[in-house]
Design a protein around this nucleic acid. Structure first.
Lengths: 197, 197
DNA sequence: TGTCAACTTGACATGGTGTCAAGCGTGAGT
DNA sequence: ACTCACGCTTGACACCATGTCAAGTTGACA
């Protein structure tokens, strides 16, 4: 928000990037396309961002700001018990995925070619993994974690379940409605992680 | 096998492609790299395959032949009941993923840029989805499918659970041993799909 | 009037894919 | 022994996206 006022062109670039990635299919979005959409010359892009990877990286960070992800996470963090926290976390993060999906996919597509893109992606993913770890740790505190999984394993599994890939496969390829995705994921995660009494 | 005798250079190319994709990181594998590894000129590659996408596509098909995926699927198909079949399917397909992972990833990385690569990838994936559908249908026949999921949804979910992505995330990024992956996936799938009595 | 920042135009290096043309060696058929 | 076709090689080139460089333009502010 702050930055939107301060630097209109930069914001226009970020917004254009996001929109293009959302609508087009990722790698089809060239620097020149972004420039055109932001109504500046291709070269001017490089006055704001040193390269494509950094632009994508900045776009994700900007989305975090715009959607105030920290604020949205509050209900999850203040949940009274492990099970509620798990469901809240899935609901929040799962609801956020559609917003970042386009950029996430672009970043992911570049991770093989571009070391910086890989770093940016790994950054984001460890943040999500921390969220998963916190949830699992809450389950452990309540004695709810299934004895079949170590705490680390449970975190990995939840993280994998909630990956952008999985969301894409279900909600884009298989056309699941967003609410159904959330509901099924909550159920699946509960069954996978929570001990049967 | 047949083809290996018949056309040694072609096989050398396919094998080199596979090895490179397995060891290097996908897009780092250029046509010239493959040519060098196969000990022919870059141009000679184009005498065998019209383009990179088709080469990758052929490599997957070739791996199916070499590892005789059909034969391996037999135990799954002849399983006596739905639950056994589910576990056998996860065990077979899950065990096959490491063999094709390198090529799968390369194909996936190209799906945005290259329509043919996308087609090749979708091809493979619908094949897997058929496998998942057959398993789910066996569960339905035995009355074992959870009432919380429609048959289609259960298929989608199983397919997502068994995606190459998920395997990569758990076995590569998180360094799970292959056996652990299989065991946890079997358990997770059972809990997600099979009704609780 | 001067100057600074943001942006523009145009040219260019780099590196990968895919194409084209010409040549070369070897084995099979005659 | 001749040649003909096949599989491969060498070398040049077009194309296209990224990223760089240099020289202008414009407008606001002092």
């Amino acid at each position: 928000m702050m930055s939107s006022e301060k630097n209109p062109t930069r914001t226009r670039i970020l917004s254009a990037t996001r929109t293009l990635l959302e609508t087009q299919g990722t790698a089809a979005v060239r620097m020149s396309d972004i420039a055109k959409a932001a109504k500046i010359s291709r070269q001017a892009l490089y006055l704001h961002f040193p390269n494509r990877a950094e632009l994508l990286r900045a776009t994700v960070r900007w989305l975090d700001e715009v959607y105030d992800i920290e604020e949205r996470l509050r209900p999850s963090r203040s949940a009274p018990d492990g099970r509620t926290r798990l469901n809240a976390w899935i609901s929040v993060w799962g609801g956020y995925i559609p917003q970042i999906q386009g950029v996430a996919r672009a970043l992911q597509a570049m991770r093989d070619t571009d070391a910086e893109a890989k770093a940016a992606w790994d950054d984001r993913m460890t943040a999500v993994r921390h969220g998963c770890a916190a949830v699992v740790s809450a389950l452990v505190a309540d004695g709810l974690l299934t004895p079949d999984l170590a705490e680390d394993e449970a975190t990995d599994l939840l993280h994998a379940l909630l990956s952008v890939q999985t969301w894409e496969q279900l909600c884009k390829d298989s056309a699941w409605p967003q609410e159904r995705y959330i509901a099924v994921m909550q159920q699946t995660a509960e069954r996978a992680l929570i001990r049967t009494v």
